[in-house]
Amino acid sequence: MAWDEWERLKAESAERNTTHMRLNGLDDGNGGRGGAGTGSESGTRGDLRVSQKSLAALGDAAYQLFGHLERDGKHAKAASASAATGLKADFDVGRALSHVVDRWEAQVRTVLDACAHISNHLEYSNTAHRKDDEHALTAISKISELDAGFDDRDQRR
């Protein structure tokens, strides 16, 4: 978001005399928060949603890319390095080819690192969110047990 856009949004909000700005949701046109399933575009507006299945698929794709790139990204290194060494003595292209081999290796390592980071981060996120969900479920279960206890006490009076 550009600074001038931010300033325009603040001014529009001040004109409506609102007491706060909402940056984490869509306005449904009635001053309320829009969400998925609101409006005529059901499921296309509102909060970001992601499933564990889609996270797992992204993590798997990154892991597979890592494996293929690690194997296939280096297969021409030996032949290219050998050719560069042989050509260096007589031609400038040997030095250039050696430079290309070095740059290629650096780029392959960079992409491998990125794939590993993506895969590891998605696995971590999946585990962390699963633990958060379990914690929330446990807390809600305890609240319902507590409510039931109060209901039993009220019925005994």
Rank of each mutant, 00 (worst) to 15 (best):
W3P: 01
S13F: 00
R8S: 14
D154Q: 12
D154K: 12
H75L: 15
V108N: 02
M1Y: 06
M1R: 05
T138A: 15
A57V: 08
M21D: 10
D60G: 06
G35A: 09
S119N: 14
L97K: 02
D4G: 02
A84H: 00
K10W: 08
G31D: 07
L97D: 02
R45K: 14
T18I: 10
H20Y: 13
S13I: 04
W3F: 11
V100H: 07
R153Y: 14
E145M: 07
D152R: 13
A84T: 00
S51C: 08
Q107D: 13
E105T: 12
H117T: 13
T18D: 07
G46D: 03
V111Q: 00
S119L: 02
F66V: 01
T38I: 06
M21F: 11
L87I: 01
A78L: 10
R49G: 08
N24T: 15
L137E: 14
L58G: 05
I143N: 06
K74D: 03
L146I: 04
F66S: 04
R16N: 04
A83L: 15
F66K: 04
E105S: 15
L58D: 02
G46C: 11
E7L: 12
I118M: 08
I118G: 00
G25I: 03
A148W: 07
E5P: 00
V93K: 04
V111F: 06
R8A: 15
D147R: 10
R8E: 15
V101G: 02
D151C: 05
D92W: 09
C115P: 00
A11T: 07
H75R: 14
W104M: 04
H20V: 06
D133F: 11
D72N: 12
R103P: 01
K142Q: 10
T18Q: 06
Q107K: 11
A62Q: 01
S125E: 06
E12K: 10
E41K: 09
S82E: 14
A84G: 02
W104K: 04
F150V: 15
A128T: 09
E105K: 02
Y63P: 00
A84N: 01
T18P: 01
G31W: 06
T138E: 15
L122V: 09
R22Y: 06
A61V: 05
E134S: 11
T18C: 05
Q155C: 01
A84D: 01
S54H: 08
